[in-house]
């Protein structure tokens, strides 16, 4: 089998998802480079999660093209899954297992050997300063630590791309900072990160962001460029400006 081109980690063209008549994701097109932290911004219901679910291979797109980590999201969803990591919005590790047992289980699911599992667990926990929670049951950990653990677990099988769905919702700002440090370190190691958020402060941490409104991707750029372009101070203002502009335009064409 020929190795696909590896210029982009994620490349998407006119990707669309319809649920009956409702268009949840409307012809989105973008590319993400290896090692880049790419943000999906948008209000709840804008289509971020649906878009992400197509990219991680659990939801079949209606039309368009897409490649993630070199695999076609239409044809190779199982192979694709081996090369990506995912951390869902809802905490989803086993409460009644210890940190190590969770990592071991998911490592096993991804087909790692016992040796790989032990070394990888140790490596990740030491790297992120979490050795002391190794034998703790997940139920006894504070939320912030649970999220960090979930992130480690998503990295067990050395994925090329990690998808994080609202990873820091509900955790306090200090943990959020630590979490973003983890993301940076990961990206520096060559892993591509795609993160959804509706927190505009967080958007500033991303290398590039895309904004989604009503299923459409209305812009893709770096946070700095966007702020400069509209001469605004914060990403929050940029988002409001763009969203309102889009709605106005939409209302005019509709009438």
């Amino acid at each position: 089998m020929s190795q696909p081109e590896k210029t982009y980690s994620i490349s998407v063209e006119n990707l669309t998802k319809k649920f009956d008549d409702f268009v949840a994701v409307d012809k989105i097109t973008f590319n993400v480079q290896k090692g880049e932290i790419f943000g999906f911004l948008g209000a709840n219901g804008a289509g971020k999660t649906t878009a992400m679910r197509m990219l991680i291979g659990v939801l079949e797109p209606t039309s368009g093209k897409g490649q993630v980590a070199g695999y076609d999201i239409f044809k190779n969803s199982r192979k694709l899954k081996k090369h990506i990591g995912y951390m869902s919005q809802k905490f989803s590790l086993y409460d009644d297992l210890t940190a190590k047992e969770n990592m071991r289980f998911f490592g096993g699911i991804y087909g790692l050997t016992n040796k790989e599992i032990s070394s990888r667990t140790k490596e990740l926990l030491t790297h992120f300063g979490m050795e002391h929670i190794e034998k703790e049951r997940v139920s006894s950990l504070p939320l912030g630590w649970k999220q960090k653990l979930a992130f480690c677990t998503a990295l067990m099988h050395k994925p090329d791309v990690v998808f994080l769905d609202e990873p820091t919702s509900g955790v306090d700002p200090s943990i959020r900072r630590q979490f973003w440090e983890m993301i940076y370190e990961t990206a520096e190691g060559g892993v591509t990160v795609l993160v959804t958020t509706h927190n505009m402060d967080e958007a500033e941490y991303c290398h590039r962001i895309s904004m989604m409104v009503a299923g459409k991707m209305i812009t893709v750029d770096t946070p700095q460029n966007l702020k400069d372009k509209y001469k605004l101070e914060t990403m929050g203002e940029v988002f409001l400006h763009l969203a309102r502009g889009y709605e106005k335009e939409h209302a005019i064409t509709a009438s």
Partner: peptide, 14 residues
């Protein structure tokens, strides 16, 4: 119900 199914769905597990 506890959400782990969603996580498992993203793994290559059959």
């Amino acid at each position: 119900e506890i959400g782990t199914m969603e996580q498992l769905n993203v793994t290559p597990m059959r």
